[in-house]
């Protein structure tokens, strides 16, 4: 049994035999009451010196000097600083987009029957011209069909039909398909025409007055009053609620 060189001072070695199995504190093991405790991090030079001086002997249940005192002897408190190992999962995490305390809303707008509607621009992936829409047999009237979007097959919904405002003409030159991504799914919205992307101050948004708007108030988030125009803010999640459910309209 090798002894350490006697030039180093050592505290008397204590055999860590527990008289009775200690209660297990959080994270501690019952099985090895004689486990060595190390600070959460350290440099070799420091730790090895400590080890040689016996300062790292186990303390639990053995009657030796409690380790807490030993720990303070460990140099470089900065490295051993972090008192908790817990990582706060979330809440404080800041999403860059939210940084600007929403003083403005960023909208993409389009036309339906002459009225201008707006949706959150973050939902819009792109706006394209109307290309060949492959009809799907026995589909409800507002599902115009499917299109090929760079290799992906996405459904196209006639927004006017969906909202009870009539029908969008596929053939009309200004008609567009607004491709939106809602809950990881891509859907194309067929509209009379696309307008623009703009920021509106939140202050200009108010509740939608009943007389002005023809569609179900449920689908709206309000209206934005700008100097010469009125933009009706649409809640896409509500409009597409049925479609977004698994199995879509079949489920009704």
């Amino acid at each position: 049994m090798a002894q350490t060189p006697s030039s180093r001072k050592r505290a008397p070695r204590k055999k860590a035999v527990a008289s009775a199995p200690p209660e297990a504190a959080d994270g501690e093991s019952i099985v090895e009451p004689s486990r060595i405790a190390l600070p959460s991090s350290g440099l070799a030079a420091d730790i090895l010196a400590l080890a040689a001086s016996g300062a790292l002997e186990p303390a639990v249940g053995s009657g030796a000097v409690p380790l807490v005192e030993r720990r303070t002897a460990v140099p470089d408190p900065e490295t051993a600083a972090a008192p908790t190992h817990s990582i706060s999962l979330f809440g404080a995490a800041v999403r860059e987009e939210r940084k600007a305390v929403e003083a403005t809303e960023h909208l993409a707008t389009f036309f339906l029957s002459g009225e201008e509607y707006g949706i959150d621009v973050r939902l819009v992936q792109e706006i394209i011209r109307v290309s060949d829409i492959t009809q799907v047999p026995r589909a409800p009237g507002f599902i115009k069909g499917v299109i090929n979007l760079r290799g992906r097959i996405i459904p196209v919904i006639d927004l006017k039909r969906k909202l009870g405002l009539g029908e969008v003409s596929e053939a009309a030159r200004q008609s567009r398909i607004v491709v939106v991504k809602v809950r990881e799914r891509l859907v194309g919205l067929l509209v009379d025409g696309a307008s623009q992307v703009l920021k509106v101050p939140v202050a200009s948004i108010e509740a939608a007055p009943e007389e002005v708007v023809e569609i179900d108030a449920n689908y709206l988030r309000g209206v934005a009053k700008l100097e010469s125009r009125l933009i009706i803010l649409m809640d896409l999640n509500k409009v597409l609620a049925l479609e977004l459910r698994e199995g879509g309209a079949n489920a009704d």
Partner: peptide, 9 residues
Amino acid sequence: LDPAVSGIT
């Protein structure tokens, strides 16, 4: 096909 479509046909 998007479930919205395959569900109905």
